[in-house]
Design a protein around this nucleic acid. Structure first.
Lengths: 144, 144
DNA sequence: AAAAAATTTGTAATGATTACAAATTTAGAG
DNA sequence: CTCTAAATTTGTAATCATTACAAATTTTTT
């Protein structure tokens, strides 16, 4: 708990009850939750919590580089409390997101391009997890 | 025009007037337009065009690998008629998207991970283009 | 030329996100 | 401490991209 407090301060975010709870959830649930999932998870223990607060807080986290916003899913944004460099896999079937460790590609990825200032680099894989691939193949068989 | 027709057929897409127009627009405008932008651009010349058709058609293109859907912008999906492998830069200020050529990193990027079947790989850079970076710095000065 | 299939269209719904203003909490000055 | 200002949180209402769906149109097949 004290660690979350410290983590927020290190990122120039004043630790409030809500901010601590949301960051605590993000860092202890590596499932890349959506704002809605975070709200539903925390609401029972913080009954005064507002969904707007969750959205506002996540925006602050991202602006202060305390969390990542993943735009891999076109339906909704997902958030990641782990800001270290890694890739993500998004299952087009069930929507789950997995962390994918990645080799050092600093020699391949650019940090500056012409007149463009890079602040974030994302590597996303999309496809199907085992379960969803099987279901997909089963459905295709049924059609044929 | 005949080339678009052929391109669609090669991807098992039956070429209709609307589909040809949308693919023609995608391939001649390398700006990674949104469905809305495509609709507004084509509507004057195809007054019967429906926005639903644009959405449906783009979905078909993506399913048949005739176009890419970019989820780099959390506001709205962008589309790319160039399916060859390249990265994208998204300006957090003005929202423009640039193509970024990328060295061969097939040795770094995975094509199979455990039980996950990869169908797409995306590399996104986010940051600020020259104009937007200047404006951002100017605003920060005004605050301080 | 008629019937079936595919495509397109328009409208209405959905659902994530944001705008905004009121309410509450926290921090600072006296 | 206590009062005031600033920051944060909250709830409601709006926005806006996208989709669902059924009717209309076009294309293909018989």
């Amino acid at each position: 708990m004290e660690q979350i407090d410290k983590y927020l301060r290190e990122h120039d975010i004043k630790p409030s009850l809500q901010r601590i709870a949301i960051m605590e959830y993000l860092q202890s649930h590596k499932t890349h939750p959506t704002a809605d999932e975070i709200f539903n998870a925390l609401y029972p223990s913080i009954p005064t919590l507002s969904k707007t607060t969750v959205y506002n807080t996540l925006k602050i986290f991202v602006e202060h580089n305390a969390a990542l916003c993943l735009t891999i899913d076109d339906k909704t944004a997902h958030f990641d409390g782990d800001t270290s460099f890694h890739a993500h896999f998004f299952c087009l079937g069930c929507g789950c997101i997995y962390d994918i460790p990645i080799a050092d590609i600093s020699n391949v990825l650019k940090t500056e391009i012409d007149d463009l200032t890079i602040t974030e680099t994302h590597i996303y894989y999309k496809g199907y997890c085992k379960k969803c691939l099987e279901e997909k193949l089963k459905k295709q068989k049924e059609i044929n």
